[in-house]
């Protein structure tokens, strides 16, 4: 029994060093060497000031109507508190939530795309659907006094296509789109 306990402690200790320290730390350095920006969180910098304006992968809670809005998020895009609404399809709160989100777009017409009304799983979804972006063009054009067609061109240039035609969905990164929008003026 003594031998057994010694062996168990020994193996746990050995593996803690290998898998708890050597494995992750060597990956930190390899990641830094090979994929510098991605390994630290894919942050985006402002082209003028050079300051960080967010991560390409982490959605933000856009509230200024001059910017494209992201999808609803149950935790208002708090990166420290990721997660979805967990509403079951029969939950009445889901319907209330949808009604609340509809109000946000009431001036912009009918047939709001689903993804602008339904919250994401991570609560940090950095993307919206292409329809979701096109739907918001008229508001942006009005707020910024820009030509609709120019914005439409910009939106379409920002579409990230399905990978290999089968993986994922066509989508648009809201932060990148809004950054481009600012640069347009």
């Amino acid at each position: 029994m003594k031998k057994l306990i010694y062996s168990s402690v020994g193996v746990v200790f050995l593996f803690t060093i290998v898998f708890g320290i050597l494995y992750p730390i060597s990956l930190v350095y390899m990641g830094k060497g090979l994929f510098k920006d991605k390994s630290v969180g894919s942050f985006i910098y402002d082209s003028k000031s050079g300051k960080m304006i967010g991560s390409e992968l982490i959605g933000q809670n856009w509230i200024n109507p001059r910017y494209f809005f992201g999808r609803p998020s149950i935790n208002n895009y708090d990166p420290m508190n990721s997660g979805g609404s967990q509403y079951a399809p029969i939950n009445p709160q889901l319907i209330n939530e949808i009604k609340k989100n509809t109000k946000k777009y009431y001036q912009e017409g009918e047939n709001i795309p689903d993804d602008l009304l339904l919250s994401s799983g991570s609560g940090l979804d950095p993307h919206i659907s292409v329809e979701g972006a096109i739907f918001q063009i008229s508001r942006i054009a009005k707020e910024r006094k820009l030509n609709k067609d120019r914005i439409r061109m910009l939106v379409l240039s920002q579409v990230e296509k399905k990978t290999f035609g089968i993986l994922g969905q066509d989508r648009i990164n809201v932060l990148k789109l809004n950054q481009k929008l600012d640069q347009m003026e």
Binding site: R71, G84, S85, Q86, Y87, S120, H127, S129, R171
Partner: peptide, 8 residues
Amino acid sequence: REGVDSRF
């Protein structure tokens, strides 16, 4: 789509 991110 509730609870599904846009990239999936």
